[in-house]
């Protein structure tokens, strides 16, 4: 459809050029701009239309809900002003789960950025440099993404709760704790699970970005006596920095929405000390305890998070672009 539209535009342009006398090369500036604008509009038309219907149309609902309250007698939502926001903010200090959720979300995020991201980069680099067995490793590293989260979480749960204590018992260590229970071990184990099963999508994207790096730059580096490690830090990382930026920027939203596969492990009854913000909101809306009365406060919570996260994201993006290593 788009192709046809543009094809038609193309055709008309050709005609208009033929009809216009003089040099094609000295096309007037405004004509060139208009042409660019026409293409711009055409390419954006359908996606924007889809967004208006399916995103704006539908998500106005979320914003609307945040200002409403559910009336159980009539089954309708009625105007509630800013009460939901007030209720949520008050609950922040009274709900016992909030301190845990915030702390855990923060831990998850920081570990994701300072351990997960570098690990992904490093592994992607190994594969890029074609260590022996690259083809095999690529498949292995991606395996957790292929097997659905259900499988990997069942595998992991059985292993950690069943096999690990048994193994330690054979080695003479009695009473090895259940790593998926108790306030001390549960969340760290979950973080480990997220890292362990999380290679895959980042790996592919970094690998793709790395493969786009101009080989001649690498050659030049080698001629200058750069070791492989230097190659990594001085050439590869700076050149794919826009991609890394993307992930860091996306990650900020993830701070509020990451539910760390907790639903897979614990259903809707995860203990408070292991919950994250994302999980808390998710259960409020999806769990079987959720009723229509829960949606408004969850919407309000979501809006508040957005108001915090949006400027943060833009700030981080700005900082990274300003102070990150540049292509030069």
């Amino acid at each position: 459809m788009k192709g046809i539209k543009n094809g038609i535009k193309d055709f008309f342009y050709d005609i208009s050029v033929k009809l216009t006398p003089k040099n094609k090369k000295t096309k007037s500036h405004s004509a060139a701009k208009r042409e660019a604008l026409i293409f711009y509009i055409c390419i954006l038309a359908l996606p924007i239309l889809q967004m208006c219907i399916f995103y704006i149309g539908i998500n106005v609902n979320t914003i609307k809900l945040a200002f409403e309250k559910y009336n159980p007698d009539t089954g309708q939502y009625v105007w509630n002003g800013f009460n939901n926001f007030k209720d949520f903010i008050i609950s922040l200090s009274t709900t016992t789960v909030m301190p845990y959720a915030i702390k855990n979300s923060l831990k998850l995020y920081l570990i994701g950025v300072f351990i997960g991201l570098p690990l992904n980069l490093i592994f992607a680099f190994f594969l890029y440099k074609k260590v022996p067995g690259t083809g095999f490793f690529r498949v292995i590293l991606f395996l957790p993404q292929i097997l659905s989260g259900v499988v990997t979480s069942i595998m992991f749960a059985y292993f950690v709760e069943g096999a690990v204590p048994a193994i330690f018992e054979k080695m003479g260590v009695a009473d090895f704790p259940n790593l998926l229970s108790g306030p001390v071990y549960t969340f760290p184990t979950i973080i480990f699970y997220c890292l362990w099963s999380g290679f895959g999508s980042q790996l592919i994207i970094y690998g793709t970005a790395m493969s786009g790096v101009d080989e001649s730059l690498i050659e030049a580096g080698k001629l200058d006596g750069l070791s492989t490690f230097g190659e990594f830090f001085k050439i590869i990382v700076p050149l794919i920095f826009p991609t890394i930026t993307t992930y860091l920027v996306i990650g900020i939203a993830g701070f509020f929405t990451n539910q760390a596969s907790l639903y897979n492990f614990f259903g809707q009854n995860a203990q408070e000390y292991t919950q994250t913000l994302g999980y808390y909101l998710f259960v409020k809306v999806v769990g079987s305890k959720a009723t229509l009365g829960d949606y408004p406060v969850a919407s309000a919570a979501g809006l508040i998070f957005t108001c915090i996260a949006a400027p943060l994201t833009i700030l981080v993006k700005y900082l990274l672009e300003r102070f990150g290593p540049s292509v030069e």
Binding site: A157, E161, P165
Partner: peptide
């Protein structure tokens, strides 16, 4: 029984 506390798998 210890398995009773396997909150991930029991």
């Amino acid at each position: 029984d210890d398995a009773a506390y396997n909150s991930g798998s029991q």
